[in-house]
Amino acid sequence: MQTGYKEHIAKMLDGNIYSLAKVISMAETDPINAGEIMQHIFPHCKPSFIIGITGPPGAGKSSVIFQLARHLSSLNKKVAVLAIDPNSHLTGGALLGDRIRMDDLSDVYIRSIGNQCATGGIAVSAYFVTKILEACKYEFIFIETVGAGQSEIKVKDISDIAMLVLAPGFGDDIQANKAGIMEIGNVFIVNKADKPDSLRLEVELIDMLKSVNEDTDCIHIFRTDCINGNGFDSLIEYLIEESKAKKNKNEHSKIKTQLIELAQSKANKIIENRINSLTDIDTLLDGILSGKTNITDIIDSNVTDI
């Protein structure tokens, strides 16, 4: 790992933002690095409340996060935002533009991440980033993702609460999302409440949710309007209540999933490293191609101990 990481960890725990950013970078690149970092920071971790936010482009996720972060900041809560955007499959590059709408809050830590991580997958990366943030005493962490894809669902698994932001005219074809909608979570934000269609959207949403699951008591719908700043008081109240209730929840299965995933990620990396560093790798690969070598023999002789 990079030299000086211990100094960065020390500075980060002391409140240095640049060091925090550097430590996050180190953890992102490799779950083995991340493991080492965890050793150092674990004693400092204080549980935070992690809020997953997803929804179609244009619905206003970043604006909603801006309003929530602003409110929480004004209540002296320490807030961080992880904004996850897709990397291009072709080039690996990414355009990460979410922080634009949140940039005016200088004491909120905002980090933009591409979902194609060096290894381990985004959920693993995001997990370690939240841990690092917890070591720095961030109390509310927003994780913003787009849509309802596989990686977003996994991210939801590391969140304490998952919220779907919808807005009239922006991917509000709820029917199309029907299958994925209950996967997201049970909190829905109908944004752009100042627009005339928002009420219709809310009604459609309720109908659709009822058709999927009769019991709508556990479903929460909030109407917000970022331009005039309306609707956030009740949402904030709800989030703060939920953050207090977190301690009392039995989330064993959730934690077990995380545990297995992280273990798998580390194992994957170790296996990858081993195979890449086999001395006679080219000969072995030729052997497999020509049919002389049995691929399972290579596996058995190199990775059984895992």
Binding site: G58, S63, L95, G97, I100, R101, I227, N228
Partner: peptide, 10 residues
Amino acid sequence: FGEYKSVEIL
């Protein structure tokens, strides 16, 4: 009136 915050489409 408030201030406008732009939508950035890259």
